[in-house]
C-alpha cells in the first residue's frame, strides 16, 4: 500500500470512528446537543479530503470545544429536569448556572474551570442545605421533651420529670447547636444562620408532605 492509499484508508477509518461516536447518541433524548455536535464532527470529516483538512476545520470552527459544551449542556439539562421534578431546589442551582454560561465558553479549560467553580460553589450550598437533616434528630429530641413534659406523674416527681429532665435536654440541644452545628455551618458560610421562618414552613408543610409522600 503506497502512502496515498494508506492515508485514504486512515481517513476512512476515522470517518467510521466519528460515525460510531455519533451513533452512540442517536435517538437518545438525553443527548440532543451531543448528537448534533457529534454529527458536525462526522460531517466535517466525511466532507474533508483528508485528515489534515478535517483537523484544520475542527480548529477553525472550534468543533472540539463545541462538542464538550454540548455534552455539558445535555447533562445540565437532564439534571435540571430531574431536580425540578423532585423539587431539589438547591441541587438545581448548579445545572441552571451551567446552562446560563455554557454557550459563552470559547476554550476547553475555561469550560472545565467554570463548571468546577459552579459545582464547588453549589456543593457548599448543598452541604449547608443538608444541615436540615438535623431536623430529624431534633424531632427525636422534641419528642422526648414532649413525652417528659406531658407525662402524668405523682407530685413527688413532677419537678424532675416534667421540668428538670426536659430543661436538661433543651440545654444539651442548645449546646450541641452552638458548639457543633453552628461552627460547622459557619465554616462553610461565615454569616450562616438558621432560617426559622423556613423551619416553621418545613415543620408545618414540607415535613408533613415528606412523610406523606408514600
Amino acid at each position: 500500500m503506497n502512502s496515498s492509499e494508506s492515508e485514504k484508508k486512515r481517513h476512512q477509518e476515522y470517518i467510521e470512528y466519528y460515525q460510531a461516536r455519533m451513533e452512540k447518541y442517536k435517538d437518545n433524548p438525553l443527548y440532543p446537543n451531543s448528537y448534533n455536535s457529534e454529527k458536525s464532527l462526522y460531517d466535517a470529516i466525511l466532507n474533508s479530503k483528508d485528515i489534515e483538512e478535517f483537523g484544520a476545520q475542527v480548529e477553525e470552527e472550534n468543533l472540539a470545544v463545541k462538542n464538550a459544551i454540548a455534552l455539558v449542556k445535555d447533562q445540565a439539562q437532564a439534571r435540571k429536569k430531574l431536580y425540578q421534578e423532585i423539587k431539589e431546589c438547591i441541587k438545581l442551582k448548579a445545572p441552571l448556572q451551567i446552562l446560563d454560561m455554557v454557550d459563552s465558553i470559547k476554550k476547553d479549560m475555561e469550560l472545565v474551570n467554570k463548571v468546577s467553580a459552579i459545582e464547588n460553589q453549589v456543593s457548599k450550598k448543598i452541604s449547608i442545605d443538608l444541615l436540615t437533616q438535623q431536623l430529624s434528630y431534633d424531632l427525636d429530641m422534641l419528642e422526648e421533651i414532649e413525652v417528659y413534659k406531658t407525662a402524668e406523674v405523682p407530685d413527688e416527681w413532677k419537678n424532675k420529670i416534667n421540668q428538670e429532665i426536659p430543661e436538661e435536654m433543651i440545654d444539651n440541644g442548645r449546646n450541641d447547636w452552638l458548639n457543633h452545628v453552628l461552627p460547622q455551618a459557619q465554616a462553610l458560610k461565615v454569616d450562616w444562620e438558621f432560617d426559622f421562618d423556613l423551619l416553621k414552613k418545613i415543620a408545618t408543610v414540607d415535613y408533613c408532605l415528606f412523610l406523606m409522600r408514600f
Partner: peptide, 17 residues
Amino acid sequence: KRTRECNPGLFKAREKL
C-alpha cells in the same frame, strides 16, 4: 421508685405520640 411511679405516665405520653 422513679421507674415504678413514672414509667406508666411516660409510656402513655409516648403511646399518644
